[in-house]
Design a protein around this nucleic acid. Structure first.
Lengths: 245, 245
DNA sequence: GCACAGGCTTGACTCAGATCAACCGGAGCC
DNA sequence: GGCTCCGGTTGATCTGAGTCAAGCCTGTGC
């Protein structure tokens, strides 16, 4: 089992099929049988690696596809009425962006690569057709959308009730958990986004984010070298975030 | 057309079918053909009017159904790790609650009636089955979920970037717009929720909400008599909320 | 190699909204 | 009627995070 996982191809490679992708256990194929994955595979368009800071789609563009992150990292953001950028999410390999476009047939946010990334494009009309035939896919898509709602509601709670320390700690714990889900280190990783992105996402200023990170380092909850995080103390940060362990 | 709308039965009445419900233009039947509505109608369970302060479902309950509000009003909330209540949404006739339960097969929040309400229960497994046959229904459900995501992201932006005045003004504008959509007065209505609910939803304290409302009244943006709002100045409040008109 | 720009950090000061406290008034109950 | 309770309002004070300002570090381009 572990051997099979490990033998699966590197997700940077654009030639790899869903069936052979290392992310199949957490990405779209998750709930599908192997013959169903073949059908999904047929509609997935794998792109060349996308350089840093390139848009995948922009707020207001006609909605055509959802996109799975295969490698790298993506942020989504929208522009407020006051003209500022509000970061609405960070997305790592195995996660899907563009779901907010379904409702109005236009993307409600923009998505940009935070580093060199590989992206799988899945045309939504084909997902709809296929979902009519594959109840597992329909169900999985309903779940995907619903989980995004739950995540957003948790984020609403975070912004509404938590202090700056708790917000930053929560983000670190969340990224750490998502690393672990991809069998990567939960205690050492590179933050692909800027301090300004973190601040926007958490409803804080850059200065506050910087101060909190420095304080966490002083308290030995993390070590920081610019964007590199190491020696992350998951339990300590969960305590700082006021989360149940 | 208007005549036909007006002749449709009062949504308090539990006997009325989707086809004849006054809300059919904004609720689930929205995207369906009339023969499709009949099929939807067959799986909808209409309850007796629900008294005030009754739970429709609770956070953690096994997920079985989504619920359309037919009359009255509902709030959803979840309990934070610190044990406080976080209000995540207010729902008016024609709107659907319980979508956050799909992802984990358990409701991620609780839903309570804020006043006497009539609720339509729609078992989700039957929606899934029917969606496999009716592409219009499948699409509509995808859209419903996606719109909830967009709403939540707008709320995230509100909490992250806006002042107390802007938050309260936004809520008033939103309720006013939803009144208008149901062909009710956009400038006079009763707030079904307490000041504490508003405060929790907007990430403020009761005192701040109270002060802001008083100030708005002094500025002639609204008139308040306890929960009754009247003479609401939509344009003025949009300006106060920093929204494009 | 050096210069420049943008990202990040740190410090001093300010302020919007929280907290604490007092009071008001209507609904429910004896 | 009078009492109590709860939701709401208003005022005085406090504080966490924002603002303003300065300086540093890092990566990039010539």
């Amino acid at each position: 089992m572990r051997r099979a996982e490990a033998s699966k191809a590197c997700p940077h490679n654009p030639a790899v099929s869903c069936n052979n992708c290392r992310l199949s256990g957490i990405c779209l194929p998750l709930a599908l049988e192997s013959d169903e994955i073949v059908k999904l595979d047929n509609i997935v368009q794998r792109g060349r690696p996308l350089p840093k800071s390139r848009h995948i789609f922009r707020e207001g563009d006609a909605f055509t596809s959802v996109f799975a992150v295969r490698s790298g990292a993506v942020k989504t953001y929208s522009i407020t009425d006051a003209g500022e950028e509000q970061v609405t999410g960070f997305y790592f390999p195995g996660e899907v962006v563009g779901l907010d476009g379904i409702g109005q047939n236009r993307y409600a946010s923009s998505a940009v690569s935070l580093e060199v990334s590989a992206i799988c494009e899945i045309p939504f009309s084909q997902i709809e057709d296929l979902s009519g035939q594959l109840p597992n896919l329909q169900r999985h898509f309903f779940k995907l959308l619903s989980s995004e709602i739950v995540d957003d509601q948790r984020h609403i709670t975070l912004l509404s009730k938590n202090t700056a320390d708790e917000r930053v700690a929560s983000l670190l714990v969340s990224i750490s958990a998502r690393q672990a889900r991809r069998k990567l280190s939960a205690s050492a990783f590179r933050l692909p986004m800027s301090r300004a992105d973190i601040a926007s996402f958490l409803g804080l200023t850059v200065e506050t984010v910087s101060r909190v990170l420095s304080r966490f380092a002083k308290q030995d909850l993390i070590r920081i070298d610019n964007k590199e995080i190491s020696d992350l103390d998951v339990e300590g940060l969960k305590a700082a975030a006021n989360l149940q362990p």
